[in-house]
Design a protein around this nucleic acid. Sequence first.
DNA 1: AAATTTCCTGAATTGTGATTTAAGAACTCC
DNA 2: GGAGTTCTTAAATCACAATTCAGGAAATTT
Lengths: 199, 199
Amino acid sequence: MARRGALKANLLVAAQRAMAEHGTSVRLNQIASEAGVTAGAVLYHYPNMQELLFEANQSGMARFHDQRLEALAGISDPAARLIQTIRTGVPEGPEDPDVRLLCALGGEAARNNLYALLLTSLFDRQVSMYQGILEMGVASGAFVLRQDTITIARNLVALEDAYGYRMMAKHPTLGYDSAVELIVEYARLATGHPLPLEK
Amino acid sequence: MARRGALKANLLVAAQRAMAEHGTSVRLNQIASEAGVTAGAVLYHYPNMQELLFEANQSGMARFHDQRLEALAGISDPAARLIQTIRTGVPEGPEDPDVRLLCALGGEAARNNLYALLLTSLFDRQVSMYQGILEMGVASGAFVLRQDTITIARNLVALEDAYGYRMMAKHPTLGYDSAVELIVEYARLATGHPLPLEK
DNA sequence: AAATTTCCTGAATTGTGATTTAAGAACTCC
DNA sequence: GGAGTTCTTAAATCACAATTCAGGAAATTT
């Protein structure tokens, strides 16, 4: 046995992985197997599975958002920050586990108010993140906005989301680079900044 | 009993409704009850449920797309066509059955290639629809595009999709009107046309 | 290292849902 | 309106998954 309480922490990431693979109809046994234990062990820590799934999704979203914030850490130029944020908002490929999790939840939110709340809150936080970057760019004179920051920010997040879904569905001509380019093209129009992509 | 073969046709819409309500994990009994028959009757026409679900989704998407095309029937002005198309691309509310169906499928597409294909094909058809409108507007001189038609069209469809998900999740400040306005704002920027919304 | 607590397993239980089947009802055709 | 076909039901079957539980293993405490 590992240290006390070790499994309980692992269960969150195990549940995330299992749900990314099997969707919202993930089985208890699939989570258990992902964690390398039996179903009973899972139930010992989370007597009802719903709570585990909820916490797993909550923590998965928090990690997704935190990672995006971290990726901005060393960048001060507003244009570079904007590009970087767009880059981290698009899944790397159809297997990206974080986005898979989010997409799996999207449909569920229509009939589960808890998940709806989680997704809504994530959306709003991401909008705020973009708004901050846009305002910083305006203040520094780098951006000349053609629309409200709330409009631009919402549309940017919306584009990320939608292209995430397209990539999960393995669209043949919409890979990571095209999706980033499409979103950046909108950002260029809205900010009046050339936002160079060459990396 | 109704006319021969009547149930089989009804099953498609019954399955659509049941799936819009219960998601991809919809039960055979829920479909049967929606159709007003027992599970056995459903299985008589569709020996395996998967095929029924697939056909139901296929026909649901086709209807969604066809309805949008029909809504354009009497409109010849490119700007009016563009606005009208955006209007029919956003769900009327969180209960809109067509969009619920589409959203339910979104997460499933990550692990079901058939559904992935359906959604990809719908996306592409909608992109083509927008491209047609944009080109018409360019030809008539109404639009002065700031981006490729493919870029604008893809972003418009992406925005529709994403705001559809937000509305399904009952975002508190993103209703039908706001979503349309957000998308139209992008369209204005991209087409150089004021696209007046007052109706 | 013994005692205690925490943790985990494997089998049994219970519930749910898809699928099969036999029988009967409803429709069509003549 | 009767024969034959198509359709539908209700009960039985089968499979699977969540949950419970008694027993034992592993960590922690003393």
